[in-house]
Structure formats: structure tokens, C-alpha cells
Amino acid sequence: MTVAREREQRLLASIARDVADVLASIATLREATVEVFAGADAAGRPVDRAALATLHPLIARLLRRHEGFAAGAGVVLAPDVLADAPRWIEWWWADRGSGIERLAVDHDPDSVDFYDYTAAEWYSEPERTRQQSITGPYVDYICTHEYTYTLAIPLIYGERFVGVAGADILAQQVERAVVPELMQLEHVAVLASGNGRIIASNTVLYPPGNVLARHEASHELLPVAGHGAADDPVAGISLPWTLLAGGEVDSIRGR
């Protein structure tokens, strides 16, 4: 294996590990939420907002543990699951320097500011597939107000989908982790998300946020690592991202 190929695979494995760490914390949060449901069931009580509030210390711990990487975390309930609210989000975000704050959104369908989270990809995908999902990068204008990824794991109680547990990661944190590594490669290298959006690259020819398929074919880009690559080195950690490689970069400005 060439030095470049090893470097590419190391890069992807490293960011996949960072993401997997957060996913592991979300899985812990999911377990705790399922226990809240089981505890209420055993006591013959319905689950309400007060019962979910007991998750706060765990969510706070998750945000502290992933400080600087995860910007927000919590659980989002499917409609009509809680006894005292038709829709509910128990989501907290890390406010720079001053602890954590609860996210307040408008759940009233008749309100001008109504936020229908069931339509969001990070909710509808885990609901549909019953698998964890990694959404983004996308502009999150509800919580972080930044370019964001959302990791989400379905909450299943019994056979029933009762919501998702998840966390937000700011796009700039992923960028900080991968761009220095990309810059060490001598050829054009582009990291793209599952829906073909550019996450990061080592040339201005492929700026983040653009859609790869709509780029002029100035380089022939081939998947070299991750999802879609012939020799998938990080299959164990299912990151829906692909690292693509092209010709040599003569300068940062490309060509």
C-alpha cells in the first residue's frame, strides 16, 4: 500500500473514531431513556416531561465529555408518546463558556414559529430505517444556527418507535480535524457526505458545501476510502462518507 493510501485511510479512520465516540455516548443516552420508559411502565405511570427531565445530568455529562466537538444533545419524542405534551424535545446545547441551556422550540402546530421536527432528516431517517443516521452538513436554523451534522439513534421501546436520541456536531469541528490531514496529501483529495456534498478538500476547486456531482470534471475523482471505495478500510465504523482522490495538486489554488 502506498504512503498516500495509508494516510487517507488513517485520516478517515480517525474522524470515524471521533464520530463513533459520540455515537457511543448517544447509545448510553438511549439506554437511559428506554429505562425511563420501562420504569414508568413498571410503576403503572405514563411517561411525562418530568420523567424525561431526569435525563438532564446524563445529557450534561455527554456535552462535557465531548466539549468542543458536540454542540448539543438530547432526546426527541415521537408525537403522542408523552402523557402531558403531544410533541416534545429534551435537547440541551453548550453555550460558549457559560454551561448548557435547554433548547426551547414552538410545538404548537397553529403557531407561526411551529417547528415540525418529524420532517427533519435526522428524525425521519432513523424512524424509517430503525438504524442510526448521520445527517449533514446542513444549516441548522433551529438549534445551533451553524453548519451542522446531527447524529441520531432511534429510541425503540418494546416494538414501538418512540423517538430519537442524538447529538449535533459543528461542521467547523470536523473541518478542524480533517483539513490538516488532507493538506498533507499531494493529490487532490475530497471528503464527501453520503449525498455527495463536499465536507472538506485540499483545494479551492472543491469548496465545502458544494455538490460534487455538479462540479466541472476538472479532475477525475475516484473513491479511495470509506463508503463506496473498492477497499473499504473503515467498514467497521459505518460513516456514510467517502474520500475521493484525483490528480496531483500543483498549488492550493488547484490545476
Partner: peptide, 9 residues
Amino acid sequence: MPDSALSTL
């Protein structure tokens, strides 16, 4: 509608 659902805005 929950009491505390006044939106951020």
C-alpha cells in the same frame, strides 16, 4: 401546548 414553548425568537 406546553407552557414553556415560547419560541427562542
